[in-house]
């Protein structure tokens, strides 16, 4: 779990569902200090941003849906599709064991943002998270 370093006053947790190489870019955003580990922030988050980073295989799909459900029990969840695999299946879009994007996995739940890249740069994640926080979450 992470918080946005540039928005320390906004109670939003960034939960990364790291399924493949894209998750390394989420970690890199942490390494560069753009995201900070949320244990360091005392107040509980009102909103969770679930960043799906990586290839969603048919085997891992139930675990991803479960992760979303767990977060959804505690409050609103904003879903971000991070990278080509989460968006469309990426280079594996024609593989029978790979879901061609996460759109169909969360019925009735919109995907707030699609971040392009294979993998996207850490800056691309942070810029988009800042935009989502500023537009959707009252300070």
């Amino acid at each position: 779990m992470w918080r946005l370093a540039s928005r320390p006053d906004v109670a939003v947790d960034v939960a990364s569902a790291g399924l493949a190489c894209c998750s390394l870019e989420v970690e890199a955003a942490g390494q560069r200090g753009l995201l900070v580990a949320s244990e360091t922030v005392p107040q509980a988050a009102a909103v969770t941003v679930l960043v799906v980073a990586g290839t969603v295989t048919t085997a891992v799909e139930p675990a991803l849906v479960r992760l979303f459900d767990e977060h959804a029990q505690h409050g609103p969840v904003i879903i971000v599709s991070f990278g080509a695999c989460a968006t469309s299946g990426g280079p594996y879009w024609d593989a029978p064991t790979v879901r061609p994007g996460i759109e169909a996995l969360f019925p009735g739940q919109e995907i707030a943002s699609y971040v392009p890249g294979c993998p996207p740069r850490p800056e691309a994640l942070v810029v988009e998270l800042e935009r989502l926080v500023d537009s959707r979450i009252p300070a």
């Binding site: 469309s88 995907i111 943002s113 971040v115 392009p116 800056e123 691309a124 810029v127 935009r131």
Partner: peptide, 9 residues
């Protein structure tokens, strides 16, 4: 540029 995320697919 890397900043061209989209709200829809």
């Amino acid at each position: 540029s890397f900043d061209y995320s989209s709200g829809d697919r």
